[in-house]
Design a binder for these strands. Structure first.
Lengths: 345, 345
DNA sequence: TACCTTTGCTTAATCGTTTAAGCAAATATA
DNA sequence: TATATTTGCTTAAACGATTAAGCAAAGGTA
């Protein structure tokens, strides 16, 4: 109610006529403090509604117990549930997280890094914006000597930890599945080639075609920012071809959704005329009609692993960071948009 | 690279053989420092790659320049773009934001409040979890004397600022629209009655029916948590009625999506047999088929207003908080799911 | 010349906590 | 009984910045 000053350990110390050092130690359960003093301190702390000043202890200990998280956008289920899992793991260890969105902008991402470093975070867990090609800005984080953990869009040459899925093999799984559905002319609406994960998916796509002796036609390989709008646009492009594909593998669910809309607008039967596969297993893939086949990226596991990796690193202070990739095996979730058998019945 | 200690103003002071006070003032462009000294300080600061220690200055000034944001979930476009706008406005004023998700849990929300207070934020901007009925935990924030701004799910008796839309009138707009479409038996899948905004929508629904002389049938008014799953469930309940509705107004887009799925599965023509209206104008309402009529909640404006309100409050320190509602006029976006005219063509 | 202002810095305290070092009293050991 | 160890605290210096107060030198005024 009134703006009376907050209680500090000094107030507790005065009340009990002991030193602030004793109070601090009592609150931290130091073995050199008697049980009697500890209980007294706790009682008075409670009584005066003492709340520790985080800034002071962070300053003194040189540790803020804050972890910065940088994501492109929070409005996808992938990133949102990933963040939730990071938070869950870290909060158990006394860390709080600061979430920032780059909004797919390189400039904003650099700003975010500065902001987080300025806030004295104890580490950064990040996934990169679409625009980000040059990772050298992250050297700033490394040079501070705090852990840097990258995930998803973040495979790197920075010699830092990385958590992701096996994108290359995922493409193989998708192509194999489509071939089982008798598709012969499979297009790929891919992400930006400069981003490692999307490049891996593209390579996987090309190599899988080769493996199954399907011809590679570069008309069928498009580079996209993977938004709904661009998914629509790229689908239109594919439909303009004299020789249309009979399947489209889209490297992101949002773009797949856009593509699906176009197919429905053009009354093209999915999957009979054109089969469709997305990537990411966003909840809406199971909500639209037909439901979209997609790849489960295990956002929960990635989040947990990223947090755990941070915790490991932060314990081994001083140790030079080394590359440490943890790659999860993704899973294909077959739904109506590519399943000719069930959707025939 | 190496873990050499960070540069402090002391290092700069030593190098130039002046006091740390002079350095601090020079960096803050104090008029009592000569231009010569200022340029020298800036040069050396640059040279030594000086980064101010935020914790130290925050401790000294009793101000962290951090603002806490609490949202139920980040994975909707509403909250995601709201956060983005808050961030945009606040970062211009030198504030950084810490985002936390309550994940629709009351307990988590209280935890989040504690976490933010512990982190010494200069204010909190929040929207409540579905579970939250009792707002008394927020008194903790008020008693700290820092600004508290609530939005969307946060209309309150706490005597703090609130930003929202005119939910009651929005319901009227929807009912009017549906009546224009010749609907006579309009159902409402509403949110929790204990949440003020959902209660307002329910009241608006009931009063609008009365206004247009349509009978109110309490079979047609259902309370929901507004998830996709529950939207499905409630739609099933409505379809089980002997006397089915010819229109359904759902208080949230996700639940509306669930309801739409069920209608499609049951081959019920939308909007001809049953018209459907959602709330929130999530991007997917424009992506599914048929596109869902919805209410634009102006997340951008709400975000900006919330941030601006915080900034106003933080300037008038000491002034007792007073209730200050800012209510925006929402807008109905008519799409195929309720537009019998266009969808007949 | 004598005094007042302004300029440009310094000194030192402070924010609230942690922690190394030290010290007196109590207890154990020989 | 004399000495060593343990217990339970205190003292005081940090952490890095900010800031009120003060002071010497330079410049201005009468």
């Amino acid at each position: 109610m009134t703006n009376k000053k907050r209680t500090t350990i000094k107030d507790i110390a005065n009340k009990l006529d002991i030193s602030t050092a004793a109070v601090s130690k009592a609150l931290h359960d130091d073995p050199r403090i008697s049980v009697k003093t500890k209980t007294a301190v706790r009682r008075v702390a409670e009584e005066l509604n003492y709340q520790p000043n985080h800034l002071a202890s962070a300053l003194r200990r040189g540790k803020s117990n804050l972890v910065g998280v940088i994501v492109p956008k929070t409005n996808s289920n992938f990133f949102s549930s990933l963040i939730q899992n990071i938070e869950e793991v870290l909060s158990k260890e006394g860390y709080n997280i600061i979430i920032t969105q780059s909004n797919e902008s390189f400039e904003k991402e650099c700003d975010n890094i500065d902001t987080l470093l300025f806030t004295q975070v104890d580490g950064i867990i990040a996934s990169m914006a679409n625009e980000t090609i040059d990772l050298s800005y992250y050297e700033k984080v490394k040079s501070k000597g705090i852990p840097l953990v990258l995930f998803d869009r973040g495979e790197n040459n920075l010699n830092v930890d990385y958590i992701g899925i096996n994108d290359y093999e995922s493409s193989h799984m998708i192509i194999e599945h489509l071939i089982q559905q008798d598709c012969k002319r499979i297009a790929h609406i891919g992400g930006y080639k400069h981003t490692r994960i999307f490049n891996n998916r593209i390579r996987g796509y090309i190599d899988a075609l080769k493996k199954y002796k399907l011809p590679f036609d570069d008309e069928l390989l498009l580079e996209s920012n993977l938004t709904v709008e661009d998914g629509r646009k790229k689908m239109h492009e594919l439909l303009k071809l004299k020789n249309r594909p009979d399947a489209v593998y889209v490297a992101g669910d949002y773009a797949a959704l856009g593509a699906l809309e176009v197919l429905k607008e053009q009354k093209i039967k999915v999957p009979q005329e054109i089969a469709l596969v997305g990537f990411g297993n966003e909840p809406f893939t199971d909500m639209v009609s037909p439901k979209i086949t997609s790849i489960n990226q295990y956002s929960n596991e990635i989040g947990k692993l990223a947090a755990q990796t941070f915790l490991e690193r932060v314990k081994q202070t001083g140790v030079r960071q080394t590359l440490n990739k943890k790659i999860l095996n993704a899973e294909i979730i077959v739904r109506d948009s590519s399943n000719k058998k069930t959707s025939l019945k």
